[in-house]
Design a protein around this nucleic acid. Structure first.
Length: 873
RNA sequence: GCGGGCGUAGUCCAACGGUAGAGACAGAGGACUUAAAAUCCUUCCAGUGUGGGUUCGAUCCCCACCGCCCGCACCA
């Protein structure tokens, strides 16, 4: 067998045809993919004898083509899946499509097609591309969220959630594009105009559905502590997003006036009740009901409110904007001193946080201080830093710790005690109570869109809101719709919209809003456990597979998607679709970095794509004209700095793309795609192949018993087993770049192996088989080809992960550096297990050390076994 | 403004508080070749952003500053 192969190899190298002189990925890769597919190698088994492992990468939006970000994401997930599988786990590694959303509708408008047609065509294209990557996916579980079978179950759960009180309906202000007749997300509003239509965006109050996520805000917050497998960064982001603050909600009496009936109160929220004696004014949001009520009664207020509105509500503009207020003429009475304070409408008060009203304490809040200085309002410090009785405030508010002053019964207290005391006193008087507030808002899911999951309710004049009967689900999207007119086609689809009431049978109308696409992606991980079930989940399946053991995706989903999924898992547990054990759906999370590339601009400022550009030393040209090389940024269509994965796979092979994606940069960091880097990866793949083939002649049979091993053969075995140990640990810890480096080391050791004889041949086979096994998670096609070439049993995808022999991972002799006063002066060779005393003795006998000591007695000798000896003189 | 991350050779990156260098890319020289490609061998280069501190010893821990990146952001 071996000789026949080698004969062919010799022949081929001479004739450069027939057998591979070079490794040809375009031939090898499809072959192994077909083998895996035929054998259903990657189907999850529901095998009760094996421990389960669920690895999931965030499923893609079917935009039409995969991009390098996908390649990186799925390459990483596949490494995890393949290693776990080889380690004996029953692995669930599924793939699907996050398929609803606006791009499909936009495409429908532009191309006069149906969003579904466009979406499914894209899915077909992208599935084909993904399959080229050779991922160990269980394709039998594939679904798209726009499949009626999927959204039927989502609608069913919507009804369960409705019954369980997890949903509510209320008015909310939205960005409304009057031309497109649709709601816009904040990101779609650019300079106050709709991104597509360019029309000035209006604020509109619409009745919308909300998931009551704020009801579990505290639970979502406290459970973050249990997410030990999540990056600290993401946990912090979620905590900040939920934004818990504890304070006092209290009511001020409004002094008698001509504008309002007597006895009106102003309710405010504060986290600093201790500063109540430092109050200088009260302020309300321009959108506060009181401001609205006074709008026409107080001259000039309408103009001020209009001015605030015109300023917009977008982040940074607000930050820089000047604090402005308008005195309403109203006054509120201090609950303890009866002092009266003016009530301002102020542009920096947010209506949707707290009560939309505050009391201002200028001395201890910078915004309040700026405001008070501008309008000549009272500034009275009530907290003094320790030992500063004559404390005053100038331009900077004091927010640090200290002792209460100027505060009657609070004087001398610490801040915390004062907070407590004020809260108690206010509560005693029935003027307020402690309240916890959250930055987190309820999750509004109504979208005035066609291409989404229909909200399965009917509006009946007699019965009100009536959920669709479950046996009638799904409420299907009608196919006969057109996008030639603006607005939601469901609104004008008379036969779809007008239906009898499910309760009373009278004429009624369907809800025409569809659900936010974040709903679709909030439970797909559970659906993968039984993707064809007639219920949203099957309890035995989700109980076995969930939680997801390893979730991998981009940091851009650190907040919304993950928070919504955490909420959904709780809601599903509450309605019986999941067990309580799965309310945290993702046990471990990994957020990978982006794929970046240089940018190129021609002389006239046009962006150029990498394949139009030729790099020349430090510069670059396109068609002979000079090109400006710009910053290295995330691949994006607008900057044209993308590289097409399919072209790379066609040119270099999937293994090469995968290997490169895992090399060099730590996976959580950005990686720069470079042509040189890819070529390096390709060279390595060729090298592994060549080393394998060239060794065939001398190798003993697969599984041959080991002869006595020593010398060079033993050294190689040590490298092999050290590599097994290190690479396995590196992969488990998501240090793929280091695992790759280990494999280069093993490859270099094989390439430089000089051993001869039976022991050497045996060790060489072990090294090559191990190299194939260890590379398999990253370059699976190459690894299978090497495995087969080496004449091994079965296929590598079914072969167990190698185990390191501990005895071979440690050296007998170690080289220890000797430091004298922290500087390296000599080194010694000692037995790895030498005692501290022995090492010390050897070190002190070392000529260099003797010379340095020059007869003196060392003050101290530090021996770190296996590491270093430091002699302090 | 608040919170977090990063800063090591020309580049990407490694180094339980212990010899600054594992690996890759790029560069240089050489071998093989009619030549090129491919391959192989050899090899130059830095002392860890800056300044302090802790320590026998700091790339690593602490403090301050500089630079870059990310998240949140008038949240009462």
């Amino acid at each position: 067998m071996a000789s026949a192969l080698s004969e062919r190899r010799l022949l081929s190298s001479r004739t450069e045809c027939a057998h591979m002189a070079r490794y040809d990925a375009s031939k090898v890769e499809p072959k192994w993919r077909a083998v895996w597919e035929d054998r259903a190698s990657f189907a999850a088994g529901d095998d009760p004898d094996k421990p389960k492992y669920y690895v999931l990468e965030m499923f893609p939006y079917p935009s039409g083509r995969i991009h390098m970000g996908h390649v990186r994401n799925y390459a990483m997930g596949d490494v995890v899946a393949r290693v776990k599988r080889a380690q004996g786990f029953d692995v669930l590694h599924p793939m699907g499509w996050d398929a609803f959303g606006m791009p499909a509708e936009n495409a429908a408008m532009e191309r006069k097609t149906h969003p579904g047609t466009w979406t499914y065509a894209n899915i077909d294209a992208m599935r084909g591309q993904l399959k080229l990557m050779g991922l160990s996916l269980d394709w039998s579980r594939e679904f798209a969220t726009c499949d009626p079978e999927y959204y039927a179950q989502q609608q069913s759960m919507f009804i369960d959630f409705l019954d369980a009180g997890l949903l509510t309906r209320r008015n909310a202000t939205v960005n409304w594009d009057p031309v497109d007749m649709t709601v816009l997300a904040n990101e779609q509003v650019i300079d106050g105009k709709g991104w597509r239509s360019g029309a000035v965006v209006e604020k509109r109050d619409l009745t919308q559905w909300f998931f009551r996520i704020t009801d579990v805000a505290d639970e979502l917050l406290s459970a973050i502590d249990t997410l030990e497998g999540w990056p600290e960064k993401v946990r912090t982001m979620q905590r900040n997003w939920i934004g818990k603050s504890e304070g006092l909600q209290m009511r001020f009496d409004i002094a008698e006036n001509d504008l309002l009936p007597d006895g009106e109160q102003l309710e405010v929220y504060t986290t600093r009740p201790d500063t109540l004696y430092g109050m200088g004014f009260a302020a309300i949001s321009p959108d506060h009901p009181l401001a609205k009520a006074l709008d026409s009664k107080v001259p000039g207020l309408d103009a001020f409110r209009a001015e605030c509105k015109a300023m917009g509500t977008s982040e940074e503009a607000l930050e820089k904007a000047e604090k402005k207020g308008f005195d309403t003429g109203l006054q509120v009475r201090h609950p303890f001193t009866d002092e009266l304070f003016p009530v301002y409408v102020a542009n920096f008060i947010l209506m949707d946080y707290g009560t939309g009203a505050v009391f201002g304490c200028a001395a201890h809040d910078q915004r309040d201080l700026d405001f008070a200085r501008k309008y000549g309002l009272k500034v009275l410090p009530v907290v003094a830093p320790e030992g500063d009785a004559a404390f005053t405030v100038e331009a900077e508010a004091y927010t640090g710790p200290g002792m209460m002053i100027n505060s009657d019964f609070l004087n001398g207290m610490e801040i915390e005690a004062a907070k407590q005391t004020v809260a108690d006193r206010i509560a005693e008087r029935g003027m307020g109570e402690k309240k916890t507030n959250y930055r987190l808002r309820d999750w509004g899911i109504s979208r005035q869109r066609y291409w989404g999951c229909p909200i399965p309710v009917v509006h009946c004049e007699s019965c009100g809101i009536v959920p669709e009967k479950k046996e009638n689900l799904p409420v299907r999207l009608p196919d006969d719709v057109s996008f030639d007119k603006p607005g939601n086609p469901l609104e004008r689809h008379e036969t779809w919209k007008n239906v009898p009431c499910p309760a009373c049978g009278k004429d009624a109308t369907r809800e025409t809003d569809t659900m936010d696409t974040f709903v679709d992606s909030s439970w797909y991980f559970a659906r993968f456990c039984s993707p064809r079930a007639g219920t949203p989940t099957e309890r035995d399946k989700v109980d076995r597979w969930l939680p997801v053991d390893q979730y991998i995706g981009g940091i851009e989903h650190a907040i919304l998607h993950l928070l919504y999924s955490r909420f959904f898992a709780r809601a599903m547990a509450k309605t019986g679709h999941l067990s309580e054990a799965s309310i945290e759906p993702f046990k471990a999370l990994f957020t990978q970095g982006m794929v970046t590339h240089e940018t190129y601009q021609s002389e006239d400022g046009k962006w150029l794509s990498p394949d139009e550009v030729e790099r020349t030393g430090n510069g670059a040209t396109a068609n002979g004209k000079p090109v400006t090389v710009g910053p290295i940024i995330k691949m994006s269509k607008s900057k044209r700095n993308t590289v097409d994965p399919e072209a790379i796979i066609a040119g270099y092979g999937a293994d090469c793309a995968r290997w490169f994606m895992l090399s060099d940069s730590p996976p959580e960091r950005d990686v720069e795609w470079t042509e040189a880097g890819v070529e390096g990866a390709a060279r390595h793949i060729q090298r592994v192949w060549r080393l394998t083939e060239e060794a065939l002649d001398r190798l003993p049979a697969h599984g041959a018993p080991a002869p006595d091993i020593d010398g060079a053969a033993l050294d190689l075995r040590k490298v092999t087993h050290k590599t097994i140990k290190a690479a396995t640990e590196d992969i488990a810890a998501f240090r793929f770049n280091k695992a790759v480096a280990r494999l280069y080391e093993l490859t270099n050791a094989v390439a430089g192996f000089k051993g001869t004889g039976a022991a050497a041949d045996w060790a060489l086979r072990e090294a090559l088989e191990t190299l194939a096994k260890l590379m398999a998670p990253m370059t699976p096609h190459l690894a299978e080809e090497c495995w087969a070439t080496l004449g091994c049993d079965g296929i590598l995808a079914d072969t167990a992960w190698p185990e390191a022999e501990d005895a071979l991972t440690v050296d007998d002799l170690v080289t220890l550096p000797i430091q004298i006063n922290g500087k390296r002066r000599a080194e010694i060779q000692v037995a790895a297990d030498a005692s501290k005393d022995d090492v010390e003795a050897i070190a002190l006998a070392e000529p260099e050390v003797v010379k340095f000591l020059d007869g003196a007695t060392p003050k101290k000798i530090i021996v770190v076994p296996g590491r270093i000896v430091n002699v302090v003189v």
